[in-house]
Design a protein around this nucleic acid. Sequence first.
DNA 1: AATGAATGAGTCTTCATTCAT
DNA 2: AATGAATGAAGACTCATTCAT
Lengths: 203, 203, 203, 203
Amino acid sequence: MKPGERRTQLLEHAARLFGDRGYYNTSISDIIASADVARGTFYLYFANKRKLFEELVDSLLLRLTSCIETVVVDDTARSPREQLVDNLVRVFVLLCEERHMLSILLRGAVGLDQEIDDKLQDFYREILEAIESSLVLGQQMGLVRAVAPRLTAMAVLGAVKETLHALLHTEYSLDSEKEIRQHAQGILEIFSKGVLQDGVSIP
Amino acid sequence: MKPGERRTQLLEHAARLFGDRGYYNTSISDIIASADVARGTFYLYFANKRKLFEELVDSLLLRLTSCIETVVVDDTARSPREQLVDNLVRVFVLLCEERHMLSILLRGAVGLDQEIDDKLQDFYREILEAIESSLVLGQQMGLVRAVAPRLTAMAVLGAVKETLHALLHTEYSLDSEKEIRQHAQGILEIFSKGVLQDGVSIP
Amino acid sequence: MKPGERRTQLLEHAARLFGDRGYYNTSISDIIASADVARGTFYLYFANKRKLFEELVDSLLLRLTSCIETVVVDDTARSPREQLVDNLVRVFVLLCEERHMLSILLRGAVGLDQEIDDKLQDFYREILEAIESSLVLGQQMGLVRAVAPRLTAMAVLGAVKETLHALLHTEYSLDSEKEIRQHAQGILEIFSKGVLQDGVSIP
Amino acid sequence: MKPGERRTQLLEHAARLFGDRGYYNTSISDIIASADVARGTFYLYFANKRKLFEELVDSLLLRLTSCIETVVVDDTARSPREQLVDNLVRVFVLLCEERHMLSILLRGAVGLDQEIDDKLQDFYREILEAIESSLVLGQQMGLVRAVAPRLTAMAVLGAVKETLHALLHTEYSLDSEKEIRQHAQGILEIFSKGVLQDGVSIP
DNA sequence: AATGAATGAGTCTTCATTCAT
DNA sequence: AATGAATGAAGACTCATTCAT
């Protein structure tokens, strides 16, 4: 077994177990039994259970961050719309592939550890701020109506989270990339034009 | 101490602790220390920690459910829009008053207990279905565009959840009912008309 | 409810429960629930659980002792044989009527309390000594062979205990006094003549 | 410390404590304190207190069973009488060496656990049946009088149990194998010929 | 006499972590 | 690098007993 392979092995098994049962219902015994590794070996690679979890979260946030590209208005190759959809698609594809991590991401690590909680909090805050500043920019360019940018950003983020959440519980499934793309476009459309017919307003 | 008061006392202290630290980081010792009650007294009122938690969840879902009224189209007193906003406002007011329960609601009881998890799941599913059927009705009446009803329902629910989530972390605050009402109207507006200016589309 | 009736009520319910489940598997809660009496009331009549048990044992030993009459050789009305059998019959009748107490008697109160244990020990010792001295007397009168008196006494007591034990487990039943009398005579015969045919010895 | 030694260590200390104080008055704390072992270590070797006890009972019954050999009538080396006595001697020797287990054996595990109780019950039943069938065989061969076989079997078993019981309370002691052999022969003789002189009957 | 809410010492059990081999 | 026996702090839960009403 190559060096580092043991580590990966433990991380993968732990991710599956944490995703399935949650942090507190996954014991070190479960992880080492699943990875077929001795108890002492675990502590050769990770300082403790919390650190292993933290590493899983870090790794996920890193990969997620690298999924998201800043939308460039004057890209001649891809329209802003395409770039937005592509961002969403990449996020969904990543998280569909790693349901276990998705589970960890959505549940958060509440009550587990302030440090890890903060990381997730920061991650979401950055995303919120990115959306918010895009909206503000759009408003400055006259493209976006006078909606409250922060509130709108939260709405968008929440919508994405909720559809991800639905994926976990198999009420909803996105099996092909085509479906995922349609899903992403659907979300974008809802927020672009709203749900009402032109000229209609809620009475 | 009146009968039933001890129970309530324990429920309240437990709610605060569960809300602050999460289920697993709240021990019975914490609860009874907080409520200043003897160990045995706890078990006089609750079979175990899980049952107490379940009761908190049940009680919250009950109160939440009773907040939400079916929107009636031909109400002469209040327009559908007002009814929608009032529903949202009541939910927000209730949850603002009980932050601890809000925390429990949003985190879910993941990995804790299938039964409790299912209750939350069912609750959210009912809300989703209510939103979805309203949208379908709106489409039949020609008011709502040809958006995917399920996806849209998830987007709306997610948006509400996310703003509630923000409340927990004090990035965002809704201190008066007036603010809450504006907040609810804001969400409604985003989903009604979307974020784009009339005649504009994302390039 | 007459005074003293509460006491009796508690004693009877406790006897049944102790007999069925044993001392440690019978809680005060069980007893007061069975007797339909408040918790505090229990302690009005008994200092504690142990004292109640002690009273049950005392009462049983008293009644047992009063069952057993010293065998008188020159009684013109009843032969010694009849007196012996009558003693056994009375003991069996008493214990058949109160199976729960029989259970307590046979199990002993081992590990429960030195004091109670000693009482049972003393009771059995007295019986042993009575049998032993009868045997010695018989030997002096030339009726009894040169068997070891103590050992023989233990054998007799053990035989009686074992058949009582069998009653508890329904392998064996003594439903009428006639059956009980035959049973007692059977035991007496075994010890009188032994099991071998005249003139035969175990090879 | 060799593998398996910890287990044995715990079993031995537990046997002593259970024997001295009984099951319910022996806590896990007592056992681990006596064996000078950490709390967690206990659960490394036994699922719980009950399982440890069960193992002690199982082990004793196994060793007891292997003490007892079927009596062979046409053995040229040892007469049936010798074989019978040898069986008894082996049982007594075993139980004299392990007083603690003797205590457990005689007290039974009443009210502790149906499963363990049944094991003891079954063990005694088998012994009873073996004695009973020997008596019936003896009757068919014309050696044994027309005594009730079941009743007689119970008497014999009871006698043996009672003398064992006496050993526990030091009223009686069997310190050498010679004494034990005399004891066994004494019991056999009582049941062979009875206690009465030839030609005498209880008046 | 009777009640039953309250108590808290004591029990079993789990599990993350350590360390000698 | 790897092992797994050993640890013990910490948690949930029980139940005999008390005492104010």
